[in-house]
Amino acid sequence: MIQVLEISKTFHDSKRGTHAAVDRVSFEVQAGEVFGLLGPNGAGKTTTLRLLATLLKPTSGTAVLNGCDVNTAPAQVRGQIGFLSGDMRLYARLTPLEILNFFGELNGMEPQWRAKRINQLMTLLGMHDFAGVRTDKLSTGMKQKTAIARTMLHDPPILILDEPSSGLDVPTARTIESAIMDAKKSGKCIIYSTHVMEEAEYLCDRIGVIDNGRLKTTGTMQQLREATGKHRLREIFLDLLGLPQDK
């Protein structure tokens, strides 16, 4: 479903000079699989996900998402994905219902299907009570539910989620995790980036660790355990980054 082939992104700026934020990264993700992309801050996770979402153009290499190439068919790629970044916000002056309708229209959803799908997601995420309230009046959890609903609205085959549960309370995070698990069961291909190791361990089928723009390793929890000799993901993560273990 997703094939990332030697993708690189180099930035040039006056302060840092030229630096490779993503350096020849390759991996594959299948349908019905959750792939966790882990790494410390500034490792290149967000840039990789932005490249897959076609927000940025690769300096070299490419990625093919459900048959669409990010270099040659970016608009088609965007039709195949639901992209959510922890940094994304909602239109403060619109209500969740208006936001969902707007993104439904952008995704070319027919009005009837759109209304049905919005209702489905609102029920799944418990959004009916605040569907008509302006977003600037909503709590963080309500906003994040709206953002998740927006990402899943057009029922895309691929979900790219960058820290979707960041800053959420446990009940809201659990609702979102359940929605992700449901999406996985229905055959969606999911790339999931997080700093919460327990969450990655619980949700992801395979994990890739990225550092300094390079993908250090990929594998299932079992493969990572065997490769590092560590048991918990947190220990594996620290080991792969060459950082001292917790005392």
Binding site: A53, T54, G79, I81, F83, L90, F103, N107, A147, R150
Partner: peptide
Amino acid sequence: ERKTLEAFLASPAT
């Protein structure tokens, strides 16, 4: 500034 542009850019709109 409000960080709403990325979602827009990630939509199928050109």
